[in-house]
Design a protein around this nucleic acid. Structure first.
Lengths: 220, 220
DNA sequence: GTCTATAGATGGATAGAC
DNA sequence: GTCTATCCATCTATAGAC
């Protein structure tokens, strides 16, 4: 438990920072489950088992805390994706296949979404940030596309025959496939399929997504 | 202007219902643009140019108004999709192609999203409802999958060779492609592509989506 | 049906003691 | 750093006059 918290929260060195970490984790969890506007500072501090005023003491404000969680998780996810893309590029001698590029895009958030992962909730937080995020978050999502530019460039190298416009659209579609992996959408799909789709089986889901998206990129 | 409002709002027969229609349209617009929790009753009535109390008089509460907009637009969209699927089924003698089925799924919301359409804002409202919706909305989204069952059944008929599990996943991916068509995501894509992707060109976008998704369904 | 005025509740933030 | 008590802004909803 302490280890899990240590991995999930920012540098919990002394007993003092334990409070900060508890607030961070409780906030991420509640925000991911119930939405940003439906969770109050009182809810967070109660869940964390700390005093009401400690949130403002450690983070300044509710919005600043929200942004801190968003920033940290975004950086972590981008880094994992960039590392996978870099490795795939190296393995392929500079020109990875479309499937390898897509795997670098899909695998990190899917690995987080594993029921056994302590990042399971972080994915849901980031997905919420896309639609419910505050203005500073939207600014980051809007302007910081450098992380995606590497993927667009790799796709151009892999498929120089495709029109750039088509390529960007297909990247957009692939991203849409990931962004739809919210708890509520999984539940809806389970309800529709009568329980056939088991989103807990991450390797199977990754294969399904790669099969679909790779074929989509191969369309004429 | 009067005609446009007549099409978008509920039965504006007399001058009395004009207030109700104005509230309905202002609310849909503000909710779609700024999110459900970021728009107050005061914002809505101010935008509509009516008195603060009229919202509660005509709709009962803010949440009831929200649900009313959601219910109306959901029914309209499902009906358009069902009609297109029905026509495609009839044209194909009972067994429409995967592409025809996907077109019945994609085309209605894309038609609404046309810059020239007076439903442009309704799509954004419905997309917000998926993530920011109140509990009653989530219940509807969760439990009322009858509309999607017809599409799943049609896909099974078109591709009896595919495992049902695979088929449901691919339907989920196709839905994800639509759900990603939010203003913010379009802007992000435009920023990334340097303006190459013009989401205002609906026929071109529909073709891009159909090419990608059809190929995805054709994956082995 | 429309308006004003206000009740009633909630939530973010902080002052100040410890 | 932690806690209590409280301020103050904001919002929904309604009572009651017209």
């Amino acid at each position: 438990m302490a280890q899990s918290e240590a991995r999930a929260a920012p540098e919990p060195r002394g007993a003092e920072a334990a409070t900060k970490a508890a607030v961070f984790n409780a906030a991420e969890r509640l925000f991911a489950l119930h939405g940003f506007q439906n969770v109050s500072v009182r809810d967070i501090t109660a869940e964390a088992g700390v005093n009401l005023a400690s949130l403002n003491y450690h983070f300044g404000s509710k919005d600043a805390l929200l942004f801190e969680i968003f920033r940290r998780r975004t950086i972590e996810l981008s880094r994992e994706r960039a590392r996978m893309l870099h490795e795939a590029t190296h393995r392929a001698g500079g020109k990875p296949s479309v499937r390898d590029i897509l795997e670098a895009l899909f695998a990190p958030p899917l690995k987080w979404a594993d029921p056994a992962s302590d990042r399971r909730i972080s994915v849901q937080f980031l997905l919420r940030a896309r639609s419910e995020g505050t203005a500073p978050m939207r600014d980051v999502l809007q302007n910081d596309v450098s992380h995606l530019e590497r993927f667009a460039q790799a796709l151009k190298t892999a498929r120089p025959d495709l029109a750039p416009e088509t390529l960007y659209w297909r990247l957009h579609f692939a991203l849409g496939m990931i962004h739809n992996n919210r708890f509520a959408e999984f539940d809806r799909l389970n309800h529709l399929s009568g329980g056939l789709t088991r989103e807990g089986d991450i390797p199977a889901l990754l294969k399904q997504m790669l099969d679909f998206a790779e074929a989509g990129f191969d369309a004429p």
